[in-house]
């Protein structure tokens, strides 16, 4: 699905990613944990092609295509989705209008026929219901005045509409109440598919009780410093990150 090799990236001339390797096969869920400032969000942004992140070395190949050569919107249309740690508001542009433009752009690129308005609306209604948001959220501005947890659920809703190949969830569990956590986990689990992969960035092993990962990685100082199975998350919860960083250094 996606193969990240020796990825180095700078932000404002400061090296953040320092030779990161990660291989993800179709259908797999990889959890990434790691201390604050380690570069987890940076990885998401670099993969998604955000301006201001300078890749100095390495490659990112998804479904045989070099992603680093594509514009952000092209990567999205290829099926790469990033659920943001801090979703931004777009006042005045309704969620529905935004979703329509987004779904249209992605489907067009993938050579699928455009959804007619009736079908589109029907799907949007189902999905917003499944993330436990009221129908009125479809008419509101994108994230406009949404609570923290509502924004996160709205990200999930967009992901469901776009049916991406690779889903990167950056702390989608942060700021969620217990019920909402369950809703998000159920949503992700329902989307698990032999042809779809996930990168789940989280600080809490609790999420991984609901979304059971195939692999857990620790990202520290711009590199993957340890990888393991689900148990690694439990170990981290117990011991913190100190032993790893010291051990590796």
């Amino acid at each position: 699905m996606i193969s990240i090799k020796n990825l180095h990236a700078k932000v404002e001339d400061k090296p953040i990613l320092k030779g990161l390797n990660l291989d993800i096969k179709p259908g797999e869920v990889h959890a990434i944990m790691g201390p604050n400032g380690a570069g987890k969000s940076t990885l998401g942004n670099v993969l998604a092609g955000r301006d201001g992140y300078e890749v100095t070395e390495g490659s990112v190949v998804m479904n045989g295509k070099e992603m680093l050569e594509l514009e952000a919107e092209e990567r999205a249309r290829e099926g790469l989705f990033l659920a943001f740690q801090y979703p931004v508001e777009i006042p005045g542009v309704s969620n529905l209008e935004f979703l329509k433009a987004s779904v249209d752009a992605v489907r067009e690129h993938q050579g699928k026929p455009a959804l007619d308005s009736v079908n589109f609306l029907k799907t949007a209604r189902e999905k917003i219901k499944s993330v436990n948001l009221d129908q009125s959220f479809l008419k509101r501005g994108v994230n406009e005045g949404f609570s923290g947890g509502e924004k996160k659920r709205n990200e999930l809703m967009q992901m469901m509409m776009l049916e991406p190949q690779l889903c990167i969830l950056d702390e989608t569990d942060s700021g969620l109440d217990i019920d909402a956590l369950q809703v998000v986990a159920n949503g992700v689990n329902a989307m698990r598919d032999p042809n779809r992969s996930f990168i789940v960035v989280t600080h809490y092993q609790r999420l991984l009780d609901y979304i059971v990962p195939d692999y857990v990685h620790v990202l520290a100082d711009g590199k993957i410093v340890k990888s393991g199975g689900k148990e690694l998350a439990l170990e981290l919860e117990e011991k913190g990150y100190g032993w790893l960083e010291n051990g590796e250094a």
């Binding site: 777009i90 935004f98 433009a101 987004s102 752009a105």
Partner: peptide, 17 residues
């Protein structure tokens, strides 16, 4: 960036906003 990450190009994004 949010718009582009969802497949919407910059020009269309600005016009929507």
């Amino acid at each position: 960036f949010l718009c582009r990450q969802r497949g919407i190009d910059t020009e269309k994004a600005v016009s929507m906003i």
